[in-house]
Design a binder for these strands. Structure first.
Lengths: 150, 150
DNA sequence: ATATTTTATTTTGCATGCAAAATAATAATA
DNA sequence: TATTATTATTTTGCATGCAAAATAAAATAT
């Protein structure tokens, strides 16, 4: 069977593409209610866990691309959710700090994970955990990858 | 543990986000060699499987958004990979047809799935199949979703 | 047959994701 | 210490992904 691997049906990558888009899309409506996009929500989640972190730490934690993050943080600053503060010792670094509004938003967002999870008829907690672990393997296998090439 | 579900570590969605971006990123270099982006490659794979299909069929098969697809097809037309042909009976429909160049590219792309698969140390064929099936469940659970909301 | 609705696709506007180049500031070195 | 790397972040340019509005053409209803 030559070219069998070129079929979309056989491609893990295309599944990931579809699943990732689908789930991000299903976050859109709930997030729109609190005026956030998905990446912005990810940034908020990172900061709700640990505030006043560096941009580098935020990149590490969220896996959002740095150049995109700059733009995202600008918009979130405009929305008064956070502030970007120049480092004192090391002036290259910037520290991200939630505003009161930003902190308060956590309450309004608390229901979202549950709401999303309700959409999964086929996937229970155990199943979900297995999936996450499998995805972690994928992520780890590719982590080193994008360095050797360069 | 209130807010536990808001932690990034516990979110399937963020895993999918990271995994999908990672793997798409790792396709970039190999695809650049044949002058394709990932979505363009997906379109080519769909057409290599079945040529002369409608835009609607292409959307169905690739899960690429229609409005994005219009732009993508424009670029691929410029590259002489395919042609967009107005339907004869139903003039609303467009049929996509590979050019000779487009068909020929299949040979140059044949090695890519293997090349990518080599990057997965942790994931064998069985594992990969399980992952794909799990992702199919996610995709199916969300398929109906985005309709009820609207 | 004409008005209305539905379908297929495109256009528009906004928000990323990403590579590459540009900046700015600290660290390392001759 | 002046010079040269190295870091941290931003800017730029291009390619989507997506919702909403616009077009165009076929199907329905009146």
């Amino acid at each position: 069977m030559p070219f069998e691997q070129l079929k979309l049906k056989n491609q893990l990558c295309h599944r990931l593409y579809m699943a990732s888009n689908s789930i991000a899309r299903s976050y859109r409506a709930p997030l729109a209610e609190i005026n956030l996009t998905y990446p912005q929500y990810v940034v908020m989640m990172a900061l709700w866990e640990k505030d006043k972190i560096t941009i580098a730490e935020l990149i590490e934690k969220t896996a959002i691309d740095g150049s995109a993050l700059t733009q995202i943080l600008k918009k979130m600053t405009d929305k008064k959710l956070l502030a970007v503060i120049k480092g004192e010792q090391d002036k290259r670094k910037r520290h991200i700090q939630l505003t009161n509004d930003g902190q308060a938003l956590k309450l309004k967002a608390a229901h979202i994970p549950t709401e999303i999870r309700c959409k999964f008829d086929s996937i229970d907690a155990t199943h979900s955990l297995q999936l996450m672990q499998a995805l972690d393997l994928v992520i780890n296998d590719l982590k080193s990858d994008n360095k050797y090439e360069a």
